[in-house]
């Protein structure tokens, strides 16, 4: 069975900017593959190249074994695309939008009507089926846009920032829907700048920065280098913004930091005896209210690999209006 997506040396330049700079990757059949990077990293350009909305300056793309650089339209019946903005027709109802999209893929009348009803049910939109798409909430719009992307039962689904700009409950519901589609065997190519989302959903992840893939691996393997690394977080009720006197000297093997007032973090390459630190702090009159081990996260891997502070990604998220 051929890989679902094969990209080799894919490059796209806009004026003076290398939007995508010679990237290569493979996505296996039925895999949920994450494409993670900050805004402007080249995620959407890559999706446009893969789906035929843009032509690569160099490189090749195969979708389901079909060479898309030679036959860009031939593979389009294999794919479904959910863009980063809901781009259905506001004047049409949810049901009409779905049947229209079904017709674009050549589904016969009865088949597209049945499929539209089935999807409206599955996506919790049956009651809003007759309402105009323009009157839907953001979360409903995203759900219907995903439904429209799979109306023709594509083998490969491209999801571009599916949960950006929607509320927490809708985002959670969407993640469940994505996981269900994946379980049903659909190959999913997911771009996101939400690290936790990629970690939670994806089997393999590529980090893309400034048009280049800097790391590509399974979530498990990406986290591997951090498995022998320990970090604890201690929160005090009356702590100061600085490091308490003598703490570093008392624990010379630990690296301490104060990320914010009242919070102390310690890192080491061996298990950390939290009780000893707490005792020292209390001897200095600091009242500890919480002490816990921080599990290694993909966010840390991302920061280590890309050098990009995740604060910047968070700010992007906030600007996008997204909730987790």
């Amino acid at each position: 069975m051929p890989d679902a997506i094969v990209a080799e040396g894919l490059a796209k330049r806009f004026e003076e900017v290398d939007a995508v700079a010679g990237i290569s990757f493979r996505v296996r059949q039925g895999e949920l593959f994450g494409f993670l990077g900050p805004n402007g990293a080249g995620k959407s350009t890559t999706i446009n190249l893969l789906t035929g909305l843009a032509r690569p300056d160099a490189g090749s793309i195969r979708l389901g074994g079909i060479d898309c650089t030679q036959r860009p339209r031939a593979a389009q019946h294999l794919i479904g695309v959910v863009p980063d903005e809901s781009n259905l027709y506001p004047e049409l109802s949810g049901y009409e939008n779905l049947t229209f999209c079904g017709a674009l893929y050549g589904l016969a009348k009865r088949e597209r009507e049945t499929r539209a009803r089935e999807l409206l049910d599955a996506f919790g939109l049956a009651e809003a089926a007759a309402r105009k798409f323009g009157g839907y909430s953001k979360g409903m719009k995203r759900r219907l846009t995903i439904a429209a992307g799979i109306i023709h039962r594509p083998e490969i689904l491209f999801l571009d920032e599916p949960t950006t700009g929607i509320d927490v409950a809708s985002a959670r519901q969407l993640r469940q829907l994505i996981a269900e589609l994946h379980r049903a065997g659909t190959t999913i190519f997911l771009t996101t700048h939400y690290i936790e989302e990629a970690e939670r959903l994806c089997e393999r992840i590529a980090f893309i920065v400034a048009g280049r893939i800097v790391q590509i691996d399974s979530v498990e393997h990406l986290l591997q280098p951090l498995q022998g690394w320990y970090r604890v977080r201690i929160v005090s009720a009356n702590g100061t913004s600085g490091l308490p006197d003598g703490l570093a000297e008392a624990f010379p093997t630990l690296a301490f930091s104060c990320p914010e007032p009242g919070v102390l973090e310690a890192e080491a390459g061996e298990p950390i005896r939290v009780g000893a630190i707490v005792r020292v702090l209390e001897e200095r009159g600091i009242e500890v209210v919480e002490a816990r081990r921080l599990r290694p996260s993909l966010e840390e891997v991302f920061v280590r690999v890309t050098g990009i502070a995740t604060d910047a990604m968070r700010q992007e998220r906030e600007r996008a209006g997204g909730g987790r």
């Binding site: 035929g52 909305l53 389009q76 695309v81 863009p83 781009n87 674009l104």
Partner: peptide, 15 residues
């Protein structure tokens, strides 16, 4: 401009 045209461009029909 509203990007709904992209949906048509993605459909497997000749331009």
């Amino acid at each position: 401009k509203g990007r709904s045209f992209e949906r048509l461009l993605l459909a497997p029909i000749p331009l």
